[in-house]
């Protein structure tokens, strides 16, 4: 069984390597946006990073009371999503919500809420520049396979798969956008069109809507599985969060 899983993981790697070349998302940004993404003084996403760092220290049972200084979170977001001990696939948002409800005894913040976005941004920023390194074997393998199925499946009234845009047409213009490889590395990202910071799942809902497909809820099993597949595609690529997007 374990051998089969390992064999499968190897096969999966070979498929990914054989697919279109994956390039960092920043390579697809306009030079202006790229420079702005690199410059905290001109990047509105940093407001969320600062708020998240304040939240990290706030209250008697603060995040810091268990984890120490947020600097210790270096490298953590690069390993998410990951499968928890109870078998659930957790992304960074899901991990934070678990700490909140199970260790802090507080109500969950809720997806896309300001405090959750802030904490996610502050923690992810600590991995900026580090290579994504999510596990794809063992308990992650089944989730990865589901993600791969969703990524390759034609969806919506416009009958397009994720891969038809993000593998086959990366680098080409779709209206005013340059299509990237659709990596999760820049999220949460400040998107000019949103005028705020948003999660990866919010971006995925936009792609679903774009092909007139059913939009899954934020934090849904479908988007979680896709997030793992996207992170596996991004293995070795640098974390860019908080990203800056048009």
């Amino acid at each position: 069984m374990i051998r089969a899983a390992a064999g499968f993981a190897l096969l999966a790697c070979a498929t990914l390597a054989g697919a279109a070349e994956i390039r960092p998302s920043r390579d697809y940004l306009s030079p202006e946006l790229r420079a702005q993404q690199d410059d905290p003084s001109r990047h509105p996403g940093w407001l969320w990073v600062e708020e998240g760092e304040a939240l990290w220290r706030r209250g008697a049972r603060s995040c810091a009371s268990c984890h120490g200084d947020i600097a210790g979170m270096r490298g953590v977001s690069a390993r998410y999503p990951t499968v928890a001990a109870d078998g659930a696939l957790l992304n960074l948002e899901g991990r934070i919500e678990r700490c909140r409800t199970e260790h802090q005894g507080e109500a969950a913040f809720g997806y896309e809420s300001e405090p959750l976005l802030s904490l996610t941004a502050a923690i992810a920023q600590r991995s900026r520049g580090l290579p994504v390194s999510v596990a794809t074997d063992g308990p992650a393998a089944a989730f990865l396979e589901e993600g791969r199925r969703l990524f390759g499946m034609r969806q919506g009234q416009l009958n397009l798969s994720c891969g038809q845009c993000h593998d086959d047409n990366a680098g080409r213009r779709l209206r005013g956008d340059v299509i990237s490889n659709g990596l999760p590395t820049g999220y949460p990202a400040y998107r000019l069109e949103w005028n705020t910071l948003g999660s990866l799942h919010r971006r995925l809902r936009a792609c679903s809507l774009g092909v007139r497909a059913e939009q899954f809820p934020l934090g849904s099993p479908e988007y979680l599985a896709l997030e793992l597949l996207l992170a596996a595609r991004a293995n070795g690529q640098p974390v860019e969060a908080p990203g800056l997007r048009r």
């Binding site: 009958n159 038809q164 092909v211 059913e214």
Partner: peptide
């Protein structure tokens, strides 16, 4: 083909309920 089918309703997956059963 990557180009969408503009006058077809069958065999499409996960179509947004607002468009289901309708060609573009």
């Amino acid at each position: 083909a990557a180009m969408p089918a503009y006058h077809r309703v069958d065999g499409l997956a996960n179509v947004d309920p607002r468009w289901r059963g309708r060609p573009v």
